[in-house]
Measured scan of single mutants.
Amino acid sequence: LKGVVVAGGVLAGAVAVASFFLRNKRR
């Protein structure tokens, strides 16, 4: 169960970083 929580956190972080980079590329 702990691994699932960690994986979810990593996935959420990756999505946040990806969206951040996409926003920067638009400018």
Rank of each mutant, 00 (worst) to 15 (best):
L1K: 09
L1D: 10
L1Y: 14
L1T: 15
L1P: 10
L1R: 01
L1I: 13
L1A: 10
K2R: 08
K2M: 08
K2E: 08
K2G: 07
K2P: 11
K2Y: 12
K2D: 03
G3A: 04
G3K: 09
G3E: 09
G3P: 03
G3R: 11
G3Q: 05
V4N: 03
V4F: 06
V4G: 08
V4H: 15
V4W: 04
V5C: 08
V5L: 08
V5A: 06
V5D: 10
V6D: 13
V6P: 04
V6G: 03
V6R: 02
V6H: 15
V6S: 07
V6Q: 03
V6Y: 14
V6L: 09
A7F: 12
A7M: 12
A7V: 05
A7Y: 00
A7C: 13
A7R: 07
A7K: 11
A7W: 01
G8Q: 04
G8S: 09
G8A: 10
G8P: 05
G8V: 02
G8Y: 00
G8T: 01
G8R: 05
G8F: 02
G8N: 00
G8W: 05
G9Q: 01
G9F: 03
G9K: 13
G9R: 06
G9M: 13
G9E: 08
G9H: 03
V10K: 06
V10Q: 13
V10F: 01
V10E: 13
V10N: 00
L11Q: 14
L11P: 09
L11H: 05
L11D: 05
L11I: 07
L11E: 09
A12R: 10
A12E: 08
A12C: 13
A12F: 13
A12H: 15
A12T: 02
A12L: 04
A12W: 07
G13L: 04
G13A: 07
A14W: 08
A14D: 03
A14G: 06
A14P: 07
A14S: 07
V15Y: 12
V15Q: 03
V15W: 03
V15A: 13
A16I: 01
A16F: 14
A16W: 14
A16Q: 14
A16M: 15
V17Y: 02
V17A: 04
V17F: 10
V17K: 12
V17C: 06
A18L: 05
A18W: 12
A18M: 14
A18I: 11
A18R: 13
S19Q: 06
S19W: 08
S19V: 02
S19G: 05
S19Y: 02
S19F: 15
S19T: 00
F20E: 03
F20K: 01
F20G: 03
F20R: 09
F20Q: 11
F21D: 03
F21E: 00
F21I: 10
F21C: 14
F21N: 15
L22G: 02
L22M: 14
L22N: 03
L22H: 02
L22W: 15
L22F: 10
R23N: 01
R23L: 06
R23V: 09
R23A: 02
R23F: 06
R23H: 02
R23G: 10
N24V: 10
N24E: 11
N24P: 10
N24F: 14
N24R: 07
N24Q: 05
N24S: 03
N24M: 14
N24I: 04
N24D: 00
K25F: 04
K25R: 12
K25Y: 00
K25I: 00
K25W: 04
K25D: 15
K25L: 08
R26N: 09
R26H: 05
R26C: 12
R26D: 09
R27I: 11
R27T: 11
R27D: 15
R27Y: 08
R27N: 01
R27E: 05
R27H: 07
R27Q: 01
